[in-house]
Amino acid sequence: MKTYPLRFETFLPTTIDNAWDFFTSPLNLVKITPPEMNFIVTSDFKPDDKVYAGMIITYKVSPLFGIKLNWMTEITQVKEKQYFIDEQRFGPFALWHHQHHFKEAKGGVMMTDILNYAIPYGPIGRLANSLIVAKQVNEIFAYRERVIGEMFGSK
């Protein structure tokens, strides 16, 4: 299985408390996902719920041609105000391992996303990645960076 590693860094001109509070709320995923993906959190969360190890989050998402897919991730690790990790348990990927790291920096917080993913279906999946998926994943993170910049105020 071919895996694809990606790394994204975003500077947030805010406190570690504000950054952690925002990104550990499962309901805020909708705010930082491109609208055309029709991303809906289907788990029953309250606005003040925060991630914890073992938390299951379910979604509906339409990544291609408006086709709705179910997706389930588990928060596997959390170290308060430092990082959390989500892993796909059911969904469109053969592997989805996403680390969210937060580190205080001069004037704010450096947020680093480390993503490793794989596409199912062998050679067909590798072709789909090169033609569609890699571009789409990068566009999702570019969108997130723009929206996060607007929300937290870019420097």
Rank of each mutant, 00 (worst) to 15 (best):
F90C: 12
I67E: 01
A53Q: 07
A105R: 04
E87A: 09
P120H: 12
N116T: 15
I140K: 00
D86S: 10
F65K: 07
D86C: 06
T58Q: 15
F45S: 04
E87P: 02
F141Y: 08
G125Y: 08
S130V: 08
K103Y: 09
F45T: 09
K46H: 06
E36S: 08
P34W: 05
E9D: 14
G91N: 05
H97T: 11
K68L: 10
K103I: 11
F39D: 08
E145T: 09
P120G: 14
P120Q: 12
F65V: 07
K31F: 10
I32R: 01
V133I: 15
T73L: 02
Q82D: 05
A118F: 00
Y121D: 14
P13D: 07
I85A: 00
T14Y: 02
A94E: 12
T15I: 07
F11M: 15
Y143K: 07
I85L: 03
V109P: 02
E139D: 13
V41S: 05
P34I: 14
F90I: 13
A134V: 10
L131H: 05
N70Y: 15
N70I: 13
Y143L: 11
L131N: 05
E74L: 01
G54K: 11
V30A: 10
S154E: 13
H101E: 09
I124E: 10
A19G: 10
G153N: 09
T14I: 03
D44V: 09
V78T: 11
P26V: 10
I75F: 03
P13N: 14
A118V: 12
I114K: 08
K2V: 14
M110E: 14
F152D: 07
D48M: 08
E145L: 10
I119S: 06
K103T: 15
K31C: 06
F45Q: 02
T10C: 05
A94M: 02
R146I: 09
K31D: 11
V41R: 04
Y83R: 04
Y4M: 13
F152K: 03
S62L: 07
E139M: 06
P63D: 09
V147F: 00
A128F: 15
K50P: 02
V133M: 06
N70D: 14
D44N: 12
D86I: 12
A134I: 11
G107Q: 11
E145Q: 15
Q136C: 03
K60S: 12
E145F: 07
H97R: 12
I56G: 06
R7P: 04
I67Y: 08
A105Y: 05
R126D: 14
N18P: 04
H98I: 08
T42P: 02
P35E: 15
A53Y: 13
M55L: 13
T33H: 00
T73W: 00
M1R: 06
Y83N: 02
W20D: 03
L95G: 01
V109T: 06
I85T: 04
G108Q: 00
F22W: 10
Q77I: 03
I132M: 11
M72N: 08
T3N: 02
L27T: 03
W96A: 10
K2S: 13
N18K: 14
I140P: 00
K2D: 05
V41W: 11
